[in-house]
Structures are given as C-alpha cells and as structure tokens.
Design a protein around this nucleic acid. Structure first.
Length: 214
DNA sequence: AAACTATGCAACCGCTGCGGC
DNA sequence: TGCCGCAGCGGTTGCATAGTT
C-alpha cells in the first residue's frame, strides 16, 4: 500500500479545534497561502499540509459564503454539472463564495435526489454545440487532449473523459431554459499562443471561459 | 422514550498533473 | 528524459443531528 506523506509524522486527525483554526488563520494572514507542506510546522500545528489546505479552502477562507444554497445557485449548479460533469472545482469557480467540497456535498445530498425525483438522468454531462469538437478541422486531437479541465480519468458513474467529452454528441443542457451557457477555449481558438500564455493566471489556465447570458 | 434511518457536512484518501532537478 | 515531491482534485468515509417509527 502506498504510504501517505501525512503518515510520516505524528499528526492530529478529525475535527479541527478552534485553537487550531486560530493558528492557521493567523499564519495565513501573515504569510499568505501556498507551500502547504511547510505550513503546519511553521504555524505550530500537528496537522499535515493537505489537512491545513482543506481546512482553509473549505472553511476558514474569509470569502466563503455560508448558509443555504439559493434557488438560483441550485439552477446554476445543475446547468454547470450538465455541462462539465463532476468537475466540482470548475463549477465552484463560477459560484463566488462556494467551495468545490460544499458544492459536491450539496449535489450528492440534495440536488441529485431532486433530479432523480424530476426524472432527470444526472449521470450524463453534455457539451454544448459551441465547444470545439475533435472532428472539427479547427480542432486537432492534440488540442482536445490538452483541454485543461483536469484529470483524464473516466468517472465510474459514466461521466466522460475530457477527450471523450470533445467527441460527445451535444445536447444543450439549457435548451429548455432561458440560460445560455457557452464555453470557449482560448487556446483552441488561438492555437499555440494560448499554450504560451498558460502561465498568466490560474483562472485562464485551468478554466475554460464560461460566458453566461440571461 | 428508545431505536432506527436518513441527511448533511467535514475531513480523509488516493490518484493525477506539473514543475524542478 | 526520467524521477521525485508537491499541490490540487474528486471520491469516499465517518460522525453528528434530525426525523420517523
């Protein structure tokens, strides 16, 4: 069995105490995010870096919106999930103040049940027609492979890999609604130039550009 | 009131991609 | 070019609480 880096040290597990939260917040306010592996020691925490990162991102960050999801947020999550599949971090990127973990939990506990009740097949994300396709002359298979949506793994629930996504037949998840979700791929449109620009910002690098119109 | 079940959420686990060497 | 370590991601688990019988 692969050894987890967190096992190498004596660490606390389970729920965080308020003292631990306080230490982590204080440290990050002073030194900023990043270099998670070094943070526990530097902040005087008996936690692994992963745990610190998760606690900060999912709970302690000042810009996190707590409380119930609104109907609008539910709708948006459903649309985005139809479009992107289980790419929670991308979906979270379109919902200010919400974390990927929170959205994932919300989806698994409420929205999926809601869709089942409505008779919607929640396991079939679909790319809409303006996403470049592999057979499109303007889109090479190489471009498709490099589509920066994260990992290639095919989800067990029948979701699509990103390469498969490029070839998926397209049904607009929004066709029955007054909401147009469009993904444009900067480097698919601009070729190599965009690959070279990939270091400009994480947002540009890891998220397709989503244009929302109402 | 107790036992059981369902639900929501925080946290952990293991895999992957990327950058540095 | 391959290896290694790290950060990030999605899936899963475990626990607390609410609801039901």
């Amino acid at each position: 069995m692969k050894r987890n880096s967190c096992e190498k040290q004596t660490i606390n597990r389970g729920a965080w105490s308020s003292q631990e939260d306080e230490k982590l917040v204080k440290y990050i306010r002073t030194h900023g995010e990043g270099r998670w592996r070094t943070i526990p020691k530097a902040a005087g925490l008996l936690r692994c870096g992963k745990s610190c990162r998760l606690r900060w991102i999912n709970y302690l960050r000042p810009d996190i919106k707590r409380g119930n999801f609104t109907e609008d947020e539910d709708d948006l999550i459903i649309k985005l999930h139809a479009l992107l599949g289980n790419r929670w971090s991308l979906i979270a990127g379109r919902l200010p103040g919400r974390t990927d973990n929170e959205i994932k939990n919300h989806w698994n506990s409420r929205l999926s049940r809601k869709l089942i009740r409505m008779g919607v097949d929640r396991s079939k994300p679909r790319w809409i027609s303006r996403v470049p396709r592999a057979e499109d002359p303007a889109l090479t298979s190489e471009t498709c492979k490099s589509f920066p949506l994260g990992r290639d793994r095919v989800p067990d629930d029948g979701g699509v890999s990103r390469e498969a996504s490029c070839r998926e037949d397209h049904l607009s998840p929004t066709s029955d609604l007054n909401l147009d979700l469009t993904i444009s791929l900067p480097f698919a449109l601009h070729g190599c130039e965009c690959q070279e620009r990939s270091h400009e910002s994480a947002e540009e690098t890891h998220s397709p550009t989503l244009l929302l119109f109402r």
